Amino acid sequence: MNPIIEESIQCPYCGEYFSTIVDTTVLPQEYIEDCQICCRPISFKVTSDLEARISVNVYREDETL
């Protein structure tokens, strides 16, 4: 499996969809990336389940993860 994936996410601020690159070599991980549309900081949480399925969840910076 390729450790670098492209994910389409929806910004929790402006609601627009955009594609971003996610590095899955270290899981779980949390990081902040700015929205490509409105430039607000999005918190990313990347995890894997027991079947190695990758899950990318995004939150507003002020939301609890």
Rank of each mutant, 00 (worst) to 15 (best):
I42W: 04
I5Q: 07
L50R: 10
E33L: 10
C35Y: 00
I37N: 14
S43C: 12
E33G: 06
T64Y: 10
P12L: 10
R40P: 06
V46H: 06
E7Y: 08
S19E: 11
S55N: 13
C14M: 06
I9T: 06
T20H: 05
Y59D: 04
F44M: 09
R53K: 15
I54G: 03
I37V: 15
I54E: 04
Y17C: 04
Q29N: 10
E61T: 11
I37F: 08
Q36I: 07
Y13F: 12
V46I: 14
N2A: 15
I32C: 04
I37T: 14
D62K: 10
F18E: 10
P3I: 06
E63D: 15
C38P: 10
C11F: 01
L65K: 06
I32D: 03
T20Y: 02
E61V: 11
S48W: 00
T24Y: 00
R60T: 09
S43E: 09
K45L: 12
V56K: 01
V56C: 06
F44G: 12
Q29Y: 00
Q10G: 05
T25F: 12
P3W: 00
V46W: 00
E63T: 07
L50V: 09
I4Y: 10
Y13L: 02
Y13I: 01
Y17N: 14
T47C: 06
P3H: 04
E51L: 13
S19I: 12
C11D: 05
T24A: 05
D23Q: 07
I37M: 05
A52W: 03
S19Y: 05
Q29A: 09
S43Q: 14
P41E: 04
G15I: 01
R60G: 10
D62C: 10
T24F: 01
